[in-house]
Structures are given as structure tokens and as C-alpha cells.
Nucleic acid binder design. Sequence first.
DNA 1: TTAAAATACGGAAACGTTTGCGATATTATT
DNA 2: AATAATATCGCAAACGTTTCCGTATTTTAA
Lengths: 341, 341
Amino acid sequence: MSTGVNLKELAAELKLSPSTVSRALNDSYEISEATKKKVVFMAEKLNYQPNPFARSLRENKSKTIAVVMPERMSSFFAKVIDGIEEVTQQHGYHLLVYSTHEDVEREKKIVNLLMNGRADAIVMSVSSQTSDISHLARLHERGFPLIFFDRICSEIPTTKFITNDYESSYEGTKHLIQQGCRKIAFLMLSKELSITKERYRGYLDALKAAGLSPTPSLQVTCAHEEENNIEAIRAMLMSEDRPDGLVSSVEKLALATYHAVKRTNIKIPEDLKIISFFSNLSIAGLLTPSLTTITQPAFTIGEECAKLLIKKLTKPRQPDLPNQLISIPSKITIRSSTIAV
Amino acid sequence: MSTGVNLKELAAELKLSPSTVSRALNDSYEISEATKKKVVFMAEKLNYQPNPFARSLRENKSKTIAVVMPERMSSFFAKVIDGIEEVTQQHGYHLLVYSTHEDVEREKKIVNLLMNGRADAIVMSVSSQTSDISHLARLHERGFPLIFFDRICSEIPTTKFITNDYESSYEGTKHLIQQGCRKIAFLMLSKELSITKERYRGYLDALKAAGLSPTPSLQVTCAHEEENNIEAIRAMLMSEDRPDGLVSSVEKLALATYHAVKRTNIKIPEDLKIISFFSNLSIAGLLTPSLTTITQPAFTIGEECAKLLIKKLTKPRQPDLPNQLISIPSKITIRSSTIAV
DNA sequence: TTAAAATACGGAAACGTTTGCGATATTATT
DNA sequence: AATAATATCGCAAACGTTTCCGTATTTTAA
């Protein structure tokens, strides 16, 4: 595979030195307008493309951002990356995308590989297994630009973008209560996850505010394997203490719940009302009955992550990413799954 | 941001020359086992990470593969990338991922950027707008490794991975006919797309084989905007010549059809039977009624693309990617949406 | 015992950029 | 008119690897 002409060849063609050509292409003040024109014209003509690795080596930056997330087949993460790409592409940045598949070991391997400077920054959402955060701490201590979104790592003092997990969960639970629910289940992934902690807290506080007490058996922690989740949820739905309402803290568990319900004779919303954090709006409306959702601003979260990073990476003397938690509110859309009958 | 030690510093620490250390780490036969041990040990101790750009510059390869696809929020493409990542990660390759959002201009920009060698190969599925393929032809003429999947570009003589589009569509249409359908609609994206051409051909041939003639007004070409698609489909479903069966050539149009049907009093499968190319199996079972699907082997397609590329890129003297069309069969799963009543 | 071959390592060039510094020619200043 | 300032460009180093080549030492062959 032959890459096209390089700087030296372009310079030879112009009877100029490589340094002059380089400066001309980078619009340096040291070069006259006349030669700039000539250089740019010839560069176009020969379709000169600067070698990205030579440039990266020299400038010690890659114009690349790495995105590390737990899974690819999730409309939430897909939208976040779309948002990131939207702004990074405008600034000529490239995206390395990695999926950990909820596996910490894979996450560690990826993060360690990224320490060699292949990317200028990392924006990530941690895996549900992540409890040991030494790999992330090391990254940050080295001064590597690191941003978290959604599933954050609060111990690491950097910028994190989330939605208002607590409030949304509180409001969602409150909505169920207002619709007459008294025994409300809560579905979550690992309890270590920042989002489950916050959403669980909102759920509990809403119960308490209504004078309800949580039922431990109705709080089920799920895993990666869908079929197992469906069965666990079905068992819970059919138990003695069966719930009349359910809050799912993530999209996939709402789908698992619909599957579980299909295996019973439970009726939604008559016997069970459901609300879930959910990003795939098109699907939410197609479920039967349509699902009341807490919609995270996925695309915006991605955009904001990228904007901050681009600023940090392109402006000359930027400080470290501040230790702040930026919350962008979700929106609750009431559909049939929580309509009182 | 401080990257760790480099080769020179590591060599100094060991009182060896950089060349020796480099060879030791690359397990060269010129280095004694004793010093290899010492070098590897010290490298581990100092956490030496080779600079990827220096290596890329020198070796003229990036250990990176670019994936270019039309959209990210599609379970099919997500699964394909998962498949690609599964094998590339095992070989230490990285993935640059780009979404064209079905926009040719964006596709061209991305492809042209990729010509500078930032990636060692491209695996792509073209946008629905792509009719001018000069950017892809140029890429291939330069000897750049290029693989197509799903939405291929048949004019370019390289390897393409698809599913058995024609046969699956033929069988799917035949299934509708067997269930009693006589007026069968066909939904597609751009007619330029390889997949619509093949799937449309299968549809037509199945009609012909059954002695049915296609109705032009039942063949609707959709676009990017979901709401427009829904309305176009609804209009078609409510027209004089309303269909009693429907084949959707892509997943998103099946969802649009369910939305359209919700706005009418049409009953599935009583009034209308539906089959679609569809990858999100979990969702297919949750639709009401559950959707009969033609499931493409998305993950496998990704794996096969990656395997071929890895072989081409890592083995010493590999020939160019052969001009071949590799078909991996889809699987039809019959669900309620096509059950005769 | 001596020449040849194998072993183990170092020096330096090369990959393609960017940039500090020096050099020349041109213009402005006094 | 002599000097200083400015404009424009080239030389060479540097980024961190890999690898060609040379060299010194040791081993093998005759």
C-alpha cells in the first residue's frame, strides 16, 4: 500500500525546503503569501496528506479520543457516542471505541493499553463489575484526561456527566405511588454502580416520603445473562410478596421484565405498573402496553463530554479537568404502563 | 501528561543500547536469553509502554482498523462491530468507528481522511445515499485493504460479506404467500443499496413463482426521517390497494410499520402479516404481535470480516483481498405476526 | 593452532513531521 | 549612508521506534 507524497517530495517539487512547506501549510507568519499560495496549490494537486503518526510523534498528541463503555447494543450508549462523534468530528478528532462487555478484566486491559498515549483522552462509563478502580486512578494520577459519564467513578477527582439519577428515580417512584402502587419492586445491575446507588436512593426516599417501607425480596440485582434475568424477575413477580409496581434502573431490565410478564398471566398496568430508565423511545411506544419512561439526555451527554474535552485538548493552556459533577436532567414520559385503571 | 519511560531511558537503566533493548523485547534471535530476561524484567518494573506512533511511523502500520457504517443505533451494526472487536482485540488491534448517518458527503470525508494511513484497513457498509463511488474506488486502487459487509459496493473488486439476501427474501415472501397473503407490500431504503436490490429481487421472484404480480403502489422507498416513514407506510396501508402482507427489508422499517399500524385499526396478523429482516431478537419477541424475523448472522459477519483482515495484515506475504462474495445464511424465525388465522 | 563461523551487542540511519535557530535579503530608522 | 529592524527561508535537531550494518568476542571446524 503506497501512501501518497510526503513533505520532502512535495518540497522538492516546489524547490523549497521541507520546513518552509510545513510552515506554509500550517499558515505560519514567517512565510510570504505568495509562496503559501503556491504550496497550498501544489499540495492539493499532488493530494498531499500529512502522515498522522509523524505528526503525533512530534507533537505528542494523537487527535484521537477513546470511548470505553460496557456494551454496544444499548440505545443509550449508542446515542451518547453519536453525540460525542458529532462534536469531535467537527474538530478533526477520531474515535477509538471499546466495549468492555461488563467485564472488569477487559476494562483494565483496555485502559492499560490506552496509557501509552494512543488517545489524547478517555471518556468512559465503567463496567458493572468495576469495584477495584486502581487502573483508573493510575490513569488519572498520570494526568491523563479522563471523563466519566453515566456510570461514574466518584472517587476519582475529575469531571463527570450524569443525569439527575436521584431526582428522576424519586419522581418516577412517586409517580407509581400516585397511580396507586403500594408494593414497588426495584431492578438493578450491580449495586456497586453509581447509577444504581443513586437511583436506588431516589426509590427508597420516595417510598419513605409516602410512608411505605421497602420489601427486600422485591429488590433484585441482575446480571449479564438475559435469560437468567428474566427468570429471576419472573420468580419475583410470582412470589408471595408480589409487587404492584416496578422501577427498572436500566433499559435492558425493563425489556427483561416484559419478557418475564409474558410468561405469566400478570396484566400491565392492571396488576403491575412499570416505569424504567429508557432511551429507545421508538421501542418504548411499541411495547404493549407502551412503557412509561425516564429518558436520559443521551445525545446531549455525549456532546457535553466531547465539548469539554475538545476545549481542554485544543485551547493552549487549559487547567486539569475540574472535579465536578454535571447533571443534565432526564424527562419522564408517561405512557400506558403506569396508567391507573 | 507524562507518558512513562521510553526505550532510551530503559536502555540507560540497563546499561544497554536502545537497539539491544528493542531486540530483546521483540524476542530477536540476536539477543541472549540472559539479557532478554533482564530486559523484560526491567521493562515490567518500569512499566515501559512502547510509543505507538513511533512504532507506526517506523513500521508503516497502525494496528488499527477503521469501521465505517451508516448508523450506530441499529442492533445489526452494533452486533457486527461486536464481532469485529472480538477478534481484533485478541490480536491487539484497535477500532476506529465512524458513523456516516446515511450521508454520502460525510462518508466521503471520512474515507478521504482515512487515506493517510491512520488505519491499516477499512471495513464498511455504505450509506444509502452512496451512488458515486469514486472515493471508494480510489481507496481500493491505492491498494488500501477494504472489505464490505451487508451494504456492499459490487463494482469494487474486493471481498464482501453478506447474508443470503435473495434467498432469505424469497423464502420470507414465500412464507407470507403460504400463509394466505396475495397482495404483499415491500419496504426498502434507497434502491441503490445492494441489499434492497437483492432482497427486492427475491421478493419479486417469489411473487412470480406463485403467479402473483407486484403492485407498484405497495413498494415504498423510505428515507431517514422516522416520522415521514411512518406516515408514508400508513398511507400505503390505508390506500385503495391495501396489502395483506408486508416484507420489510430492514429493521427500522418494521418498527415504523408497527407504529403506522398503531395509527390505524388494522390488525396483525388478521389483516396484515409482517416479516422483516431483523437483528434485535429480544425486541422481536416483545412486539405485539411478536414479529416473524429474518435474522442476519450479524456477529458472525463481523467476526469473519475481522478474521480475514487480521490474516491479511499480520501474515507476511499475503495477496490482495480476493474479489469474492461470501454469503452467510440468515435464519427465519416464525412468530405471531405471520400466523394464519 | 589457525581460520572461519556463529554469537551478542552497539552505532547510526531512517520513518515524516515540526520548530529553534541561523542566514540572507529587504525595508525602515536615524 | 550606515545601522537596525523585519521579512522570508533553509539547516538541522528532535520525537521514539526498528533495523541495517559493523565489531568484538566466543565457538566451531580443519
